[in-house]
Design a protein around this nucleic acid. Structure first.
Lengths: 109, 109
DNA sequence: TTGACATGCAACCCGAAGGTTGCATATTGA
DNA sequence: TCAATATGCAACCTTCGGGTTGCATGTCAA
């Protein structure tokens, strides 16, 4: 399994791509055509977004005849949650405390 | 509190900015100059990255004389974990199941 | 077998993003 | 008071990202 989260963060940075993930969350296994119906752009633009999602392994593809079915792969999101967000979540209250304290000291001065 | 996660996703998309967050994670409250020492680019470039982090509310700033102290604000990361990642994590096994099943059916055909 | 359908590929356009350099401003401490 | 320090502001350059259009390819169904 890849250990590089960068393509995942990049893929998640665009609202249209998050929207595609949401669409697959609503109904998994949609075709390209179906996904196009939910975004206000050309099929080619949607294809490009899906390519990025595939490269980040957020979406997996299965061909059925001439149709391309898209499936959500939750593993990279899980990896981000585990390896990245978890770290900050663990120190959350400490960081908030630092911030509060700094603001108070600033007020004094 | 802002409810818009887009600037947060955008801010997290760049490796240099994630690195800055990591640096503040290591030692909270660093000055601009200190943060510059940890990235291989000009001070102005670092400033630009920090502006994006501030706009996403991931970093809060306190001025102490001529020094600008940077503090981690864990709230937006928490928001992403709660409102966005949590949703996918909850359906994680279901999505993996869909994917596995689709791959098997593809194999049959 | 053929036309309609689902998708791929490639060139192109434009604005945004990341970086640089140069200069201005404010604070500090000797 | 003045030089060094810490930072801001603005113009500029190049690359990348998101979007389009046009055409090619492969599959299905009548």
């Amino acid at each position: 399994m890849s250990n590089d989260l960068d393509p995942v963060f990049k893929a998640l940075a665009d609202p249209s791509r998050r929207r595609l993930l949401d669409a697959l969350f609503e109904r998994n296994g949609q075709t390209l055509g179906e996904l196009c119906g939910q975004l206000d752009m050309t099929r080619q633009a949607v294809t490009k977004h899906l390519v990025l999602l595939e490269e980040a392994q957020l979406v997996a593809v299965v061909w059925r005849g001439r149709e391309k079915l898209h499936y959500l792969n939750p593993v990279p999101i899980h990896a981000i949650a585990e390896r990245w967000i978890g770290k900050f979540e663990r120190q959350r209250l400490t960081a908030l405390g630092d911030l509060k304290k700094a603001l108070e000291e600033d007020h004094d001065a």
